[in-house]
Amino acid sequence: MKILVCISNVPDTTTKVKFKEGDSLFDDSGVQWIINPWDELALTRAMELKEDAGNSVNEICVIHVGGASADATLRKALAIGADKAVRIDACPADAYHVAGQIAEYLKENPFDIILSGIESSDYNGSSVGAMIAEFMDYPGISSVTSVNLDDDDIQINRAIPGGKQVLKTEAPFVAVVQKGIATEPRIPSMRGIMMARKKPLEVKPAVELEVLTESIKFELPQEKGACKMIDSESAEQLVELLKNEAKVL
């Protein structure tokens, strides 16, 4: 079996977000770029599946739609253990565009399992995985918290509000994964970093695709008013304020 992990390259989660050019563009000066945390967990789970002898997973490929600035992120994925990286050379316009590019690649290069993080921590499209499933006419499963292969029999856990479901499906399929899919991302080893040098990072030209949406402006949330401080002995006063001032009780 072959696993494809979709990777997006996002600002580090501690980034303080700023904009430039009349608030029309994200200001990326001084920003540290990382693998989208959910995608990194998806890659970790893919690695675990490959290392487990109880299934036939033998190849892990990571794919990204974007410019050359993401190559460092892709090489990190190779250092962690992916066998191959593919970058579709395009400016990622929106989720439809990104998913369409990945689907085009999948048509030529089939995979059994496609993993995508629940959302990217930048534009929070949360749509790419489900769109790939639709482009390919594959089953797609969202809110996935575990993917298990028992001799290639696929069993998936999915979070539902207040509970969980255990599902079975057939390959090929797309799983949109969230926290829980793996415990923590892996740190690349020195050997892994050396090996990554020799692994392929293919750059593919993008296909022509319509762009359906466009970000035209950004704004920061309004500053909150000052916090009203209440004495720690006066719990009654807080209850009173929540009832009559904030009106939330």
């Binding site: 929106d94 989720a95 439809y96 998913a99 929070n124 499209g125 949360s126 749509s127 790419v128 995985g129 489900a130 769109m131 499933a133 639709e134 482009f135 797609g140 969202s142 809110s143 979070a159 539902i160 509000p161 949109v176 319509e210 359906l212 949406t213």
Partner: peptide, 22 residues
Amino acid sequence: NNSGKAIAPRVSVKLKAGHVAA
């Protein structure tokens, strides 16, 4: 919500309808 996030992107592709979440 979970279902909206799962369905809307698929409908977007089916209808070539630009999709914005949240």
